[in-house]
């Protein structure tokens, strides 16, 4: 995690329920390998390109990163494939955190294991409380998200058992800090 204080501020992109991994990164881009820096950036440039055209563009024409850095979504975010490319593509496009009502298991796990973005869960339905392009501030340790555009505060669920893994920067950092594997 790049923000040690756990404060994330940015512009919000709002999504529905059941945003699947084919919408997040269509399968034709799975020939890209996330660990190769150039292809990591490319994956970012295709993030959410599977969305129907009823959504505003997530990444502006000619740009490779998004102006949005926080996603607010409904239920079952990231359902479908185990492709870690989905987490990677969002992170590479500049997303720092997702706030969803709930997650599909593997997406959540990949976000935690890679430490690429904060997968936060909201206490209540938030997709009606944020409009596309509004400003938000997440305070991870306080467990809140503030709608800066309307000055309203909402509670987030605590990260719970995965908190220490997220704080350690992912599964490798966690396993090293607990002596499960050798320090590098």
């Amino acid at each position: 995690m790049d923000d040690s204080k756990g404060i994330i501020t940015g512009t919000v992109y709002v999504l529905d329920n059941n945003i699947d991994t084919d919408l997040i990164i269509p399968a034709c881009y799975l020939n890209l390998v996330p660990t190769i820096p150039e292809e990591y950036r490319k994956l970012g440039s295709y993030a959410l390109s599977g969305l129907p055209s009823s959504y505003p563009r997530f990444i502006k024409e000619g740009q490779s990163v998004s102006e949005y850095s926080i996603i607010v979504a409904g239920k079952n975010f990231g359902c479908g494939s185990s492709r870690e490319h989905a987490v990677t593509a969002l992170a590479a496009a500049g997303i720092k955190a997702v706030i969803a009502e709930s997650y599909a298991r593997i997406f959540f796990r990949n976000a935690v294991a890679t430490g690429e973005l904060y997968p936060m869960e909201s206490e209540q339905v938030l997709v009606d409380s944020f409009k596309m392009g509004m400003q938000a501030e997440i305070n991870v340790s306080a467990g809140t998200v503030t709608n800066l555009s309307e000055n309203s505060v909402f509670k987030l669920k605590p990260l719970g058992a995965v908190g220490p893994v997220v704080e350690a920067g992912g599964i490798f950092g966690y396993a090293r800090s607990t002596g499960m594997i050798r320090k590098k």
Binding site: P34, T35, S82, R83, E84, V87, I106, R109, N110, A113, T114, G170, I171, F172, A175, M180, I181
Partner: peptide, 15 residues
Amino acid sequence: GIGNTDAGFVMGTGK
């Protein structure tokens, strides 16, 4: 099913 990072971990440790 698991992602690449978890799989990299299993590859090295079996756990």
